[in-house]
């Protein structure tokens, strides 16, 4: 990691983060390990939206869970607001959890389907061991519900009575219950229709302004990430390929370029001719000594097969891991 990158404005600093998963028992089936997140370093600046984009299986959700220490890292560090998460005791970690929350693609994966909205929204306080009187509980739920644009009439509904967009609003309200400063949003709109996706993005934008939040926004949709995020981290096979300081910056990594090239604009006067990449996305278990994109890259050279390109600085906030960047 390039030490010259300014890190003082960052709420979260991720350094050389790796997570391995193994499969097979080593007896009947050979034991294989793979690195779902492979030596990832990045900063999440305070008050900004950092986007992580990449195709399915590239390690986005694993990264999200590592950042919140919902999953232990095999190697590397996550510093949140100056504190190394790995060295926090359980009780310190519980306090920190109030400040960092997650919004999932399926907001009800983590909530009991038999809970009313009211109960689901009070659950985080219970987990924290925070007692509330009935009146306090009602005031809290009222406030959360109106914050995410739901009607107070919905308080006693069950999740199956809500539409996908309404459920995601509950998911966001629940994440906000303990007044966090940092939200990890793991594909929060991926299963919604576009007319609802845009509503939720609009809501997230205003909540961020109102509450001064910092977001790590994960998506496979580059046009959404480019619209919503201040910086864009492009991942491939567990590795960071490029970090773009802003949506206007042209990618110079060949994979980031291919991803952009695959993104059709909603404008028939701007049709494109897609560059055909050879090859397939390699198996996550493949041991790749060099660049993870080498099998599909039109600019691959010998060194790309042998040596993993380090993430290096191209310009202000612009980082790239490529031996032969595009012009």
């Amino acid at each position: 990691m390039d030490a010259s990158v300014p890190r003082d404005d960052s709420l979260v600093t991720i350094t050389d983060l790796t997570r391995e998963f193994s499969s097979g028992d080593g007896f009947m089936k050979p034991r294989r390990t793979m690195r779902a997140v492979n030596d990832v370093s990045l900063d999440v600046p305070r008050g900004k939206v950092t986007g992580v984009v990449g195709e399915s299986g590239c390690g986005k959700s694993t990264l999200a869970r590592l950042v919140l220490r919902l999953l232990e890292a095999t190697e590397g560090k996550v510093i949140f607001d100056g504190k190394d998460l790995a060295t926090q005791s359980q009780s310190e970690m519980r306090k920190l959890r109030r400040q960092m929350q997650m919004v999932f693609q399926d907001p009800y994966s983590a909530i009991d389907p038999r809970y009313t909205i009211r109960r689901a929204l009070l659950e985080p306080f219970k987990v924290q061991g925070e007692a509330k009187t009935a009146a306090e509980g009602k005031a809290t739920v009222d406030e959360l519900i109106s914050m995410v644009g739901l009607s107070p009439r919905m308080m006693d509904s069950f999740p199956h009575q809500l539409s996908g967009g309404q459920k995601q609003r509950v998911g966001i309200a629940r994440a906000l219950a303990l007044r966090p400063s940092f939200l990890v949003l793991d594909e929060p709109t991926a299963s919604l229709d576009v007319s609802i996706q845009a509503q939720i993005i609009d809501l997230l934008e205003s909540l961020k302004e109102e509450l001064g939040l910092t977001y790590l926004f994960i998506s496979h949709d580059l046009s959404l990430v480019r619209y919503f995020c201040d910086r864009v981290v492009v991942m491939y096979l567990g590795r960071v390929m490029e970090i773009l300081p802003g949506a206007e910056t042209q990618p110079r990594h060949h994979y980031a370029h291919a991803l952009l090239d695959s993104n059709f604009e909603p404008d028939p006067t701007r049709r494109k001719i897609v560059t055909m990449l050879g090859g397939e996305i390699p198996s996550p278990f493949a041991k790749i000594p060099g660049c993870a994109f080498v099998a599909r890259c039109p600019a691959a050279s010998d060194i790309c097969k042998r040596e993993r390109p380090p993430l290096t600085r191209l310009g202000d906030g612009h980082m790239i891991a490529c031996h032969n960047p595009m012009d």
Partner: peptide, 26 residues
Amino acid sequence: RELIRCIPRFGQAPGSLKGIPGTVPS
């Protein structure tokens, strides 16, 4: 018209994506 406005375009100003109010009817 509204459906097309729900898709973020390159260079679109922050805060300008609004969605269509309400829910997709069942």
